[in-house]
């Protein structure tokens, strides 16, 4: 017993990792039909790695699902297909085909409605279609104010809606997985991670990410302070300036609704991203056009069923 009291500690990243693995295993043990939402971004890359760790040496025992809008960056589709093949996971791709065929776009319907149809409705339909009772998402509480109050296990009614005033209390690491038919739980194993933790972990674990997080040259529509990646379906407005620029992206979404950041210093490795992140005082969602509605737009979307 002489060595038993000798203190041993884990670094903060290893503690976060352990917490996430515990949550992922808990879901695999307690739900009938879980799915892991895979959005191709950096957080998804980390979440998938944690799932690999949780079930090693076995494979991830549930499918990944990408709710696609058809408007993602070509680099994201390319990365997704290679990444999934490399790790040997099962991927489901779902899209709201009806809305896409109907020409849903942020220019035709406005950003809120387009997101509502392609992302929120697309997700809800996909969850219903496959009968998933738990869906992992890579959201972090630090990302946005309304997320700061969301549980790790976030209960959704049969319409997929979140009721912030009526959340189940969540204590220690005792998660309540009970749901009735049709209801579900969104599970956020990365709740306690920050953007910095994500990048440090990607560096430590050498996890592959979509290359457009790094500096590259691309055609950009400059609209006031926004840098919108040029693509043929995005209308150029009077006053816009179209030019080649050195840019990178801090978070990834649909091309029409994801702002780039100008790369004044070239960032070609993870260390560069990490150093920039420590120096910067802008939050990662600021370049997401979709959040510019009002101070509470994310909360509204979440109530309706968005992640």
């Amino acid at each position: 017993m002489s060595t038993a009291s000798e203190p041993k500690t884990l670094s903060h990243l290893k503690q976060l990792e352990a917490e996430s693995i515990f949550i992922i295993r808990e879901v695999a043990a307690e739900f009938k039909n879980p799915v892991m939402l895979y959005s191709v971004g950096k957080d998804s890359s980390v979440m998938v790695r944690l799932a690999q760790k949780a079930f090693h040496p076995g494979k991830i025992p549930f499918p990944l699902m990408h709710v696609d809008t058809s408007y993602k960056f070509p680099e994201m589709y390319e990365f997704r297909d290679k990444f999934i093949q490399d790790i040997g996971a099962k991927l489901i791709v779902e899209r709201n085909e009806e809305a896409i065929a109907g020409g849903a776009s942020p220019f035709k319907f406005g950003v809120q409605k387009c997101c509502g149809l392609l992302k929120t409705q697309g997700l809800l339909d996909a969850l219903t279609k496959h009968g998933f009772d738990a869906a992992f998402g890579g959201a972090r509480r630090e990302e946005e104010k309304s997320r700061a109050k969301e549980r790790v296990y976030s209960f959704r009614d049969s319409f997929g809606q979140w009721d912030p005033k009526n959340q189940r209390p969540e204590l220690w690491d005792l998660y309540n997985s009970r749901v009735n038919e049709g209801e579900s739980i969104r599970v956020f194993p990365l709740s306690n991670w920050t953007e910095l933790d994500i990048w440090l972990y990607i560096e430590m674990e050498k996890i592959p990410v979509v290359p457009i997080y790094f500096t590259h040259t691309r055609k950009i529509i400059k609209r006031k302070s926004l840098l919108i990646p040029w693509v043929s379906h995005i209308p150029v407005l009077p006053g816009d300036e179209v030019r080649e620029m050195k840019v990178r992206f801090r978070s990834l979404g649909c091309m029409s609704c994801t702002g780039a950041i100008e790369s004044t210093t070239e960032v070609h490795d993870l260390r560069g991203i990490i150093e920039d992140l420590i120096l910067t005082r802008k939050s990662e969602r600021e370049n997401r056009i979709i959040d510019h509605g009002s101070d509470s737009s994310m909360e509204q979307k979440k109530k309706e069923g968005y992640f």
Binding site: A148, K149, K165, Q167, D295, Q300
Partner: peptide, 21 residues
């Protein structure tokens, strides 16, 4: 203060998690 409901009412209704390093 995180949620629209509580900002309107000027109250805090639940546990919120914050991060710094």
């Amino acid at each position: 203060d995180g949620l629209a409901a509580e900002r309107e009412q000027g109250i805090t209704i639940d546990v919120a998690y914050r991060y710094f390093a």
